[in-house]
């Protein structure tokens, strides 16, 4: 029987039989369904995914009319990262004029709110110039990144040093202190960039440091939304599961540790988020079929439980995209099509 050319979650090529791909799809959706207590993909969805992986074409795409909105994280920094010598303004014009970007995002190279706050006086004039010469909606974005608030870089004791010493209450107390600093920085930067004319503020890689990180961002969103009711706020997550690094934090009476995307979005909505971006981590030991089925299962449940637009994270290492610096077109385009057509997304 003819083998199907596909890849593992690290991007390496693997040739599987049709029954092996089918098995991976079933196991991927089962894994997500069991973890999050959500419905697995239907037989029809699994068959569509199987056809997608059986298709020998290098690149695939959604049916005409099913296109969605693309939003970006760390937008302008991507050019610097690959050593393309263009300014932030020029890179936004490249997104606008050459990459077919529906929305754009400007960010500081050190893509977190804490370092960004120190250079707002440099960022704001560039952002204001960009707004004068570009047309698509323009976000300012950065990561909450609570890790930056620990010593020696920040003012707080490091909970990762306290926990192994058995200092549980001290570790919790320092995370609560980190939340206060992070909320202040996110509100400060968000306010200045909105007053500079931003169409939206993006909180990217939210909850990377666990439940305290998530809570800080929800609180910042709440404050910003109260201050600027018209502000568009996008919240992109860092993984499918909120790590309980504190373990006892709640928002609106809901314990944050252990929440999966379909529950995360409920709290994001309550806080005032306009667009939510679930993230599902790619497992490098499993095939792309397994990872895509799993990511689509989590994401579809999130879409079905949401009243706001959902833009899933489908960058390197999330959403079924392999963990490699050069994600292959065959894998990425299959994730793109599967997420939109089966996950019923509003954007990516």
């Amino acid at each position: 029987m003819q083998k199907i050319y596909t890849r593992m979650g690290d991007g390496s090529v693997v040739e599987l039989s049709e029954s092996e791909v089918r098995q991976d799809l079933e196991e991927g959706t089962k894994d997500a369904a069991e973890r999050a207590k959500i419905p697995p993909l239907s037989e029809d969805d699994l068959q569509r995914l199987l056809e997608l992986y059986k298709c020998p074409d290098k690149s695939v795409g959604v049916e005409k009319g099913k296109e969605v909105i693309l939003s970006y994280d760390s937008g302008t920094t991507k050019f610097n990262r690959v050593n393309v010598s263009v300014s932030k303004l020029q890179s936004l014009q490249i997104y606008e004029r050459m990459l077919g970007a529906d929305t754009m995002e400007m960010g500081h190279m050190d893509y977190s709110y804490k370092p960004a706050k120190n250079i707002m006086w440099i960022e704001q004039p560039v952002f204001e110039q960009a707004l004068l010469v570009t047309i698509p909606p323009l976000f300012y974005g950065a990561m909450p990144n609570l890790g930056l608030y620990t010593q020696p870089d920040g003012p707080c004791l490091n909970p990762m040093e306290l926990l192994p010493q058995g200092k549980i209450s001290e570790a919790r107390a320092t995370q609560e202190e980190m939340i206060e600093h992070a909320v202040r920085d996110m509100v400060y930067v968000g306010s200045l960039m909105y007053e500079s004319g931003a169409d939206g503020i993006n909180f990217d890689t939210t909850a990377a440091a666990g439940d305290a990180d998530f809570l800080a961002t929800l609180r910042a969103v709440e404050i910003l939304k109260k201050k600027y009711p018209q502000m568009c706020i996008e919240m992109g997550m860092s993984g499918e599961f909120i790590l309980g690094m504190h373990g006892e934090l709640t928002y609106d009476g809901v314990k944050l540790a252990g929440l999966y995307p379909h529950k995360q979005v409920e709290l994001a909505e309550k806080a005032g988020v306009t667009i939510f971006g679930p993230a599902v981590n790619t497992n490098t030991n499993e095939s792309c079929a397994w990872n895509t089925a799993r990511a689509v299962t989590f994401t579809k449940a999130c879409v079905e439980n949401s009243n706001i637009p959902i833009h899933a994270n489908v960058g390197m290492g999330v959403g079924g995209v392999p963990v490699t610096e050069t994600p292959p077109v065959d894998s990425v385009s299959r994730v793109s099509k599967a997420m939109v057509e089966i996950g019923r997304l509003d954007g990516l």
Partner: peptide, 21 residues
């Protein structure tokens, strides 16, 4: 970015992507 743009994006201001956004 280019792969997603071709596979499922609306096309930005080449089309009406910016307006729908």
């Amino acid at each position: 970015h280019i792969t997603h743009s071709i596979a499922s994006g609306m096309g930005g201001m080449r089309t009406a992507g910016d307006l729908v956004a």
